[in-house]
Design a protein around this nucleic acid. Structure first.
Length: 921
RNA sequence: GCCGUCUUAGCUCAGUGGUAGAGCACUCGCUUCACACGCGAUAGGUCACAAGUUCAAAUCUUGUAGACGGCACCA
């Protein structure tokens, strides 16, 4: 079979995905084993507004590696894809579109039309990311794709809301909330970020105290809020002010009189020791207001302009303009004490970067107490979820839960799940799953639904179970898609996806949404299904730009995954991403991907070499069991050392690979397959077997295909396209090689069994013998290189060794001659060579090459001295330890023995080298 | 303020009580019939610094310096 000289990822990427998808390989139904265990992952649903970035690519790669690995192991595997309706983001897109195309505001077209357009926007642009996921090779079950506003998911949302409300866990209340004046909606604490702003100011305002003939000074970073002050608070034990408690202040710029109150909250040491109290615009002031029964005076509109309460002079002014004007007026009145430079951290809207205004507002909240305890208990009693990496996430997650406050769930948007609460004309609330129910409850049809929608995270918090058909309906028929698991294969009990796939096995996501999403999904899943959402959570690190900073549009340091796919191939990009240590941040570098692009090419060419000599064997290597193969080889003359060695290496690699993936050590897994394939298989095995193979030795080709097949299977989860492309070309690849669960499906490596790495194939003797051969070859190569001997010059290699290894060298003479480019081999007990020879020692042998006329004596001295120095340094270190009584007494005996043996061995080698050196002079 | 992470070869990063590793770059040599996206051979590190625990520390503890993250507060 002829293969191109270099691997071209494009064609493989185009061919296979469609076929996999069309053949239903991504669905759990492809698994025909009724007793198969299940494996499930739900995708963190990307925003419909999003397009693929490197963080997605990383997470998707890890999820796909797990899904493909488990699928090959015979698990009934489901990786469920979907998208999130992304309330604010979509709303903003539609608003922009409306403005640009029609110069209209949302209120011009009304809610119904706006929502219709949002859906249209979603239909048109919302599947960018799902298309990109196909390119990634993501083995997701598209037939189970979910959207957070799908009918059944929306039903789940309403039912959860109603249940929580019935229990009293959801309530409506007046609170200080984070208000974004640009998006004109409330935000949860988690959607507010801090931004340190230099050049901020702390303004000191003097308030005249009535009847005291003095003023009291308060400091503020938001002078405009003084228009809403309803008190000044001082610490009751503060001698400077305690006489003033109870007195009234004539609040400047207003005609209001406000009291001075004593409150322990006030820190006498900080600022002036007196605090202006604005209960409607500050959470702490609100608390003080509650304690002293102060009125709340809201002085701003929802766009952060001042309202009528601020007075005629200020009404309509933006908050920042009002701020300046307040300061000016105080100065005019002589009541401005001073303005200090002050570094302030401003709360900003995570999405639009507008300064968030704390404002008193009526919103819906979820009490988190019960669910918090559930989640904490799960962690405490079962250690669930198990985070990878555990440090620091387990602790951070637990600490966050312990301090969890009520969750603000209403949002002043039109796009999303409208809150299922209706009001009558008197303002009575009726919470119900449908309008009809609400009418029934209210006994009237003249109700108005709450205009707000729910926080996007409310619906995504149900993702782990709402995606499997859970709607919260009593007596509802949950859709039955999959068939049963169970010990008795004859009994096929139909089970719903919910039964089959919840709890999911693992969640793979970024650390930025542990609180926003992961924690809420854990709590809501536990509460509403009684099950765990997932056992394990893999937290990926951040892929940073080349400058070491997080990728962002403003920094223009982003790297587009699609560009990388085009440049290096999907497989190379995937395996590079998987090679990043779990949870570690990494600076992006193209060279890393290039390494794996080269690796892909190496795999391609190794396979190409094998296929050049793929004579049909009289033995069906492909479908034979490992035992049958061994038996066959034995009958036909047995396995060579190289065969036994590569079998052992392959088994050990597969074994370690499975252990690494079980513990989510993806980078370790990559390292294992990379070095097995390149170092063991290509650099040594192929080279050792080359003659046999090119000569058409059927035993040799049979065995090499067996190893290659195993290597490709191990690589498949990381490099799906390349491995499929090559595997299908292997002689004998067919669905007979599939895992037994997929025996009827069309041939594909993605359904082949994943190598187990049975320890019974570990062969330490073969590895030790092979190493002796490899060491000898390396020493000869070293001599050739350091003596500058052209490969055109051939020479005789003398090897002295114990009889055991003499036998090994004799049996592998052909290989040694070929790889060391030597002409002949002399194997003996003792070296017997002329003075003009270059020499070296290995752990098992002494090596000499007579080089009459070619040897550079100075150089040879240097070589020998170098070797002696290295070994002597090591021996000195060992002997130091061995002469330490404490070491001998306290270190484990086996350690001491090992060191003793090594020391003796080193002494022997050093002595040999010294003799060699003497012989030179 | 509280909690936490990182600092290892020129670069990007693994490792984690018992002789320092990879990829790339560098040096030398190879157009060897799978692959120059390659092959072979070298070189390169007192594992940030200091003290401690230990027979043994890059690995554990404490502190210092630098880089960074989360949470809280911010009159």
């Amino acid at each position: 079979m002829e293969l191109a000289k270099a691997y071209d990822p494009k064609s493989a990427e185009e061919d296979h995905y469609q076929r996999w998808e069309k053949s239903g390989f991504f669905t759990p139904e492809v698994n025909q084993n009724p007793a198969a265990p299940t494996f499930s992952i739900v995708i963190p649903p990307p925003n419909v507004t999003g397009s693929l970035h490197m963080g997605h690519a990383l997470q998707h790669t890890l999820m796909d590696v797990l899904a493909r690995w488990k699928r090959m192991q015979g698990y009934r595997t489901l990786w469920l894809p979907g998208t999130d309706h992304a309330g604010i983001s979509v709303q903003r897109k539609v608003v922009e579109q409306l403005k640009k195309e029609e110069h209209k505001k949302p209120t011009d077209i009304g809610r119904e039309e706006f929502v219709r357009r949002a859906w249209a926007w979603k239909e048109e642009y919302g599947n960018t990311i799902t298309e990109q996921m196909r390119r990634e090779g993501a083995s997701v079950d598209w037939s189970r794709h979910r959207f957070t506003m799908d009918e059944s998911l929306s039903l789940a949302v309403r039912n959860v809301f109603c249940t929580l409300h019935e229990e009293g866990s959801i309530y409506r209340g007046l609170r200080i909330v984070n208000w974004c004046p640009k998006d004109k909606t409330v935000l949860s604490d988690l959607e507010v970020k801090d931004e340190v702003k230099k050049g901020g100011q702390l303004t000191y305002l003097k308030y005249p105290v009535i009847g005291a003939g003095r003023t009291i000074t308060v400091a503020t970073t938001r002078p405009e809020t003084m228009l809403g002050d309803t008190a000044v608070a001082v610490n009751p034990s503060d001698d400077r002010y305690k006489d003033l408690i109870g007195k009234m202040i004539a609040l400047p710029l207003t005609d209001r009189e406000i009291p001075i109150v004593g409150d322990e909250y006030v820190d006498a040491e900080f600022g002036t020791g007196a605090v202006k109290v604005t209960p409607a615009h500050d959470p702490n002031d609100y608390q003080i207001g509650q304690r002293h029964d102060l009125p709340h005076l809201l002085v701003m509109n929802d766009d952060a302009t001042m309202n009528a309460n601020a007075g005629a002079d200020f009404e309509g002014l933006d908050r920042f303009a009002a701020r300046e004007k307040v300061v000016e007026r105080f100065e005019e009145l002589g009541l401005l004490e001073k303005v200090d430079e002050y570094e302030v951290t401003l709360p900003i809207c995570e999405r639009c970067k507008t300064v968030v205004e704390p404002i008193l507002s009526e919103q819906w909240f979820v009490k988190m107490d019960e669910m918090r305890e559930m989640a904490l208990d799960l962690m405490k009693s079962e250690g669930v979820p198990h985070f990878s990496p555990r440090i620091p996430h387990e602790k951070v997650y637990t600490a966050w839960l312990e301090n969890l406050k009520d969750w603000t769930i209403s949002r002043q948007l039109w796009w999303g799940h409208q809150i299922p609460a209706w009001y009558d004309e008197k303002g009575n609330v009726f919470v119900a799953c449908t309008a009809e129910e609400a009418y029934e409850k209210a006994g009237t049809r003249s109700l108005t639904q709450d205009p707000d929608v729910l926080d996007t995270w409310f619906s995504s918090g149900l993702w782990a179970f709402s995606t499997f058909g859970w709607t919260g309906e009593r007596n509802a028929d949950t859709p039955v898609r999959s068939f049963a698991q169970g010990a008795d294969k004859s009994v096929r009990v139909p089970l719903s996806d919910l039964d089959n796939f919840l709890p999911t096995d693992v969640l793979v996501t970024g650390r930025d949404i542990i609180f926003l999403w992961v924690s809420r999904m854990i709590m809501l899943t536990r509460k509403f299904t009684g099950k765990k959402a997932f056992e394990d959570v893999v937290i990926t690190g951040t892929v940073l730009g080349k400058d070491g900073k997080p990728m962002s549009k403003s920094r223009n340091n982003g790297v587009d995954p699609i560009e990388m796919f085009d440049k290096f191939g999907v497989d190379a990009t995937r395996i590079y991403l998987a090679s990043i240590a779990t949870g570690a941040d990494i600076k992006w570098n193209d060279i890393g991907v290039e390494t794996y692009r080269n690796f892909a090419n190496k795999i391609w060419n190794a396979t190409r070499f094998c296929l050049m000599y793929s004579e049909t064997s009289d033995f069906d290597w492909a479908t034979a069991t490992e035992d049958e193969r061994k038996l066959y080889r034995k009958e036909k003359g047995g396995l060579t050392l190289a065969d036994r060695w590569i079998d052992s290496r392959a088994a050990k690699t597969a074994h370690a690979l499975n252990r690494a993936l079980e513990t989510y050590q993806f980078h370790e897994a990559v390292s294992l397959v990379y070095h097995f394939f390149w170092d063991d298989f290509c650099d040594w095995y192929i080279e050792l077997k080359k003659d046999e193979i090119t000569e058409g030795n059927i035993l040799a080709t049979t065995h090499i295909f067996w190893v290659l097949d195993m290597a490709l299977r191990m690589l498949h989860p990381f490099m799906p396209y390349l491995t499929e492309e090559l595997w299908l070309k292997l002689p004998g690849s067919s669905n007979e090689l599939h895992h037994e669960a997929y025996i009827n499906a069309e041939a594909s490596i993605m359904l082949a069994g994943f190598p187990v790495g049975n320890p019974k194939w570990f062969d330490d003797i073969a590895e030790k013998e092979m190493e002796a051969v490899i060491d000898a070859i390396k020493k000869v190569r070293n001599i050739r290189a350091e003596m500058n001997i052209s490969t055109a010059v051939s020479f005789t290699v003398h090897i002295a060794a114990h009889s055991y290894y003499q036998k090994v060298f004799v049996e592998n003479e052909a290989q040694i001659l070929k790889l060391a480019k030597a002409e002949s081999l002399v194997i003996s007990d003792e070296l017997d060579v002329p003075k003009a020879s270059a020499k070296a020692v290995t752990d098992n042998a002494s090596i000499a090459i007579p080089l009459e006329g070619l040897i550079d004596f100075d150089k040879e001295c240097e070589r020998l001295l170098n070797q002696i120095t290295k070994l002597t340094d090591e021996k000195t270190r060992l002997d130091g330890q061995l002469s330490n009584v404490n070491f001998l007494e306290r270190a484990p005996a086996e350690k001491v023995d090992a060191l003793r043996e090594r020391s003796v061995e080193l002494e022997h080698q050093i002595q040999t080298l010294k003799n060699n050196l003497e012989a030179l002079s």
